[in-house]
């Protein structure tokens, strides 16, 4: 286990308020489906100006697509991200304009919640976590998001303006009592969502192998599960070819250790299970991976 100082993603999100406000106005006026043609020029623009994202995308796609990698794949990857950002605006806005969703494994989540210990819902920057949040709102499932908030830029502030309750549901990472808040929330039977594939610079990480390379995975979600005793459930929401979001809940089937001595081994096993889950998603949905920075540590 090591402590990393990885500042690469702790930078303000790209996209300024003015552009986002314009996009928002356009989205509301023109409508979601009629706006989609715009995504290609937008993706092309980012493809041209953002060399770092382009490099990161290529490095990732060469792993995920293997022999099937072609030059155009990077542009398609960026288009897929632009589509997710657009859909995110509608997920946050209101249910009448939301993209449609299909849900698989709902009983898994409901069973887990019935135990009364709340639930740690573990996702990744793959597909759209917003799709699940919107579903939660529609069904009044109490959901809070554990987020590293201080680095979020203008884009997120505008998105938050769409859903005034959004900010109140976020538990910001980085305060001494952050996890006390999480434990209290779980104690009330609420769901706490975590995207476990990135860490702020103070986070402790465990090395793992993913898509044939070395990655560094935060151990926080798994230590948190042990500290609170709350069950973990995996969630992904991926946009299918027909424009429907497939939301899938999956049991996290690594048993919690009975003693403190078993904790280290549990965290290692849990990280491997989590990485295996991410890897399978990447292979099935290669363009849904939204970490546009050099995620692999052994990159040339």
């Amino acid at each position: 286990m090591s402590r990393t100082t990885d500042r690469r993603w702790v930078v303000p999100e790209r996209g300024n308020r003015l552009v986002m406000r314009f996009a928002l106005w356009l989205a509301r006026t023109v409508g979601r489906r009629r706006l989609e043609w715009l995504l290609w020029p937008v993706s092309l623009y980012f493809f041209v100006v953002n060399a770092a994202a382009r490099r990161a995308s290529r490095a990732y796609l060469q792993r995920a697509l293997r022999g099937r990698y072609r030059t155009g794949a990077v542009l398609r990857h960026m288009h897929s991200f632009a589509q997710a950002v657009l859909d995110r605006m509608f997920f946050l806005q209101d249910s009448t304009h939301m993209p449609p969703v299909r849900v698989e494994g709902r009983e898994q989540l409901l069973q887990t919640l019935a135990a009364g210990q709340g639930c740690l819902l573990l996702g990744a920057h793959i597909g759209s976590f917003e799709a699940f949040r919107a579903l939660g709102r529609a069904h009044t499932i109490p959901l809070r998001m554990l987020m590293y908030r201080s680095n979020l830029g203008g884009a997120t502030h505008v998105l938050e303006a769409l859903d005034p309750a959004y900010a109140g549901l976020i538990i910001p990472i980085g305060e001494v009592d952050t996890m006390l808040r999480v434990a209290e929330s779980l104690g009330k039977g609420e769901i706490v969502g975590i995207l476990g594939d990135r860490t702020p610079d103070t986070g402790r990480c465990v090395p793992a192998r993913m898509l044939g390379g070395d990655v560094s995975i935060p151990e926080g979600p798994f230590r948190l599960a042990l500290a609170t005793g709350a069950p973990l459930v995996l969630v992904s929401a991926i946009r299918a070819a027909d424009g429907v979001y497939d939301i899938r809940f999956e049991k996290f089937d690594v048993p919690y250790p009975s003693s403190r001595q078993g904790r280290g081994a549990f965290v290692q096993m849990a990280v491997e299970r989590y990485v295996g889950w991410m890897e399978a998603l990447c292979l099935r949905h290669p363009f849904a991976w939204f970490n546009f920075y050099d995620y692999w540590k052994d990159a040339p």
């Binding site: 006390l180 209290e184 948190l224 500290a227």
Partner: peptide, 30 residues
């Protein structure tokens, strides 16, 4: 070098062993 999860563990320990409840909304947590 403790982190927020350690703080939670400390809060649980303090509650269990000394009967003192630490809460997230207490103004003097820092």
């Amino acid at each position: 070098g403790l982190d927020s999860i350690d703080a939670l563990e400390i809060a649980l320990l303090v509650g269990r062993d000394y009967g003192v409840t630490l809460r997230s909304d207490a103004p003097d947590n820092q």
